[in-house]
């Protein structure tokens, strides 16, 4: 079972991103059993089927897919995966911030794909609370990445007040 970081701890988690097999269509593909993260297209096409299965729903957004597409559904989605096709593709940071700040999403936001030790600190600041690291990463060591900086200048999800409103008067 894949080991992920969830709320600062390493846990086993069965939920893996489901990718549409080549040639399959979102309308007709067989839905995977159990906990999963569905591609946006499948979720949009099969929302009612998925909810009828009864398991807490999960959906993943690719880096070119904005949270607007699922904004109205967020109350029914337990986990939103945000995919990083390459770690240098930074769109997912804005996606997470919009999910938290704009749409007040309180479920899990999980970074998936090219998720590396050295990006975890920023990801957490932007509202990610779960991280499925790339297979070659040292998950135990990665836990230390959340302590990289003792403070931060900007307002963000983990600290809504910018430093200038928190400096000792």
């Amino acid at each position: 079972m894949p080991r992920i970081i969830q709320n600062g701890a390493i846990v086993d988690d069965p939920r893996t991103p489901f990718r549409l097999p080549e040639g399959a269509s979102p309308e007709t593909v067989a839905l995977p059993a159990g906990l999963t993260l569905l591609p946006l297209a499948v979720w949009l096409a099969r929302r009612d089927d998925v909810l009828a299965l009864g398991a807490p729903a999960g959906v993943w957004l690719d880096s070119n897919e904005g949270p607007e597409a699922i904004a109205a559904d967020l109350g029914r989605i337990a986990v939103v995966g945000v995919n990083f096709p390459k770690f240098t593709d930074g769109r997912g940071y804005s996606t997470a911030r919009l999910l938290r700040d704009r749409y007040a999403y309180r479920g899990e936001i999980r970074a998936i794909g090219d998720v590396l030790h050295d990006q975890l600190f920023y990801m957490k600041r932007c509202g990610f609370d779960a991280f499925a690291l790339r297979a070659d990463q040292n998950v135990e060591k990665a836990l230390t990445a959340f302590r990289t900086f003792g403070n931060a200048y900007q307002a963000a999800v983990d600290q809504p007040q910018p430093l200038f409103r928190r400096r000792a008067a």
Partner: peptide, 10 residues
Amino acid sequence: WSTFHPEFAF
């Protein structure tokens, strides 16, 4: 503001 801005590093 720009130093270690978490959203705009990539």
